[in-house]
């Protein structure tokens, strides 16, 4: 690919926050967005991941996608820990509006309110929304 795919990258470290707002299927944003998160982590950056709005469905347990002939990529989120992406958040209001709780999710998350997420975003260097 290029020189920067190397795990040995030893440049500056910035705080990257990835805001996932879209449902996992219906559009490609969630799937291609996850690729960016994994590459950013491979660059040893300080990565946070936020699930809000329909984005909380990305990490819902028991996804069954055979009927729409799409690959169920939700197991990939479990790989985040292996990339040392440990700052994973879900928005409280989004979970509640969709009748979801932490027990419904494939990975452990810290649940934060919209106001708390705003404070978290204030501390970041780069925010990318997918």
């Amino acid at each position: 690919m290029d020189d920067f795919e190397d795990d040995e990258f030893d440049g500056p470290v910035k705080k990257f926050l990835f805001l996932n707002r879209k449902a996992p299927y219906g559009t490609i944003y969630a799937l291609e967005g996850l690729e960016v998160v994994l590459i950013t982590a491979a660059f040893d950056q300080d990565v946070s991941m936020v699930f809000a709005d329909d984005g909380v469905f990305q990490i819902k347990k028991d996804q069954e996608t055979s009927g729409i002939n799409m690959k169920n990529f939700s197991p990939t989120y479990r790989a985040l820990e292996g990339y040392e992406v440990e700052k994973v958040y879900a928005e409280k209001e989004s979970l509640e509006a969709r009748g979801l709780s932490e027990d419904d999710l494939v990975i452990p998350v810290e649940v934060l309110s919209a106001a708390e997420l705003a404070e978290l975003m204030d501390t970041q260097d780069v925010i990318v929304s997918f």
């Binding site: 990257f16 960016v36 950056q45 780069v126 929304s129």
Partner: peptide, 21 residues
């Protein structure tokens, strides 16, 4: 054509990364 690393690097060395979507 290149890899996603180029995007990450733009975020690292730029003062701002601006998304148009």
């Amino acid at each position: 054509i290149s890899g996603l690393g180029q995007l990450v690097e733009a975020g690292i060395i730029g003062d701002r990364l601006i998304t148009f979507g």
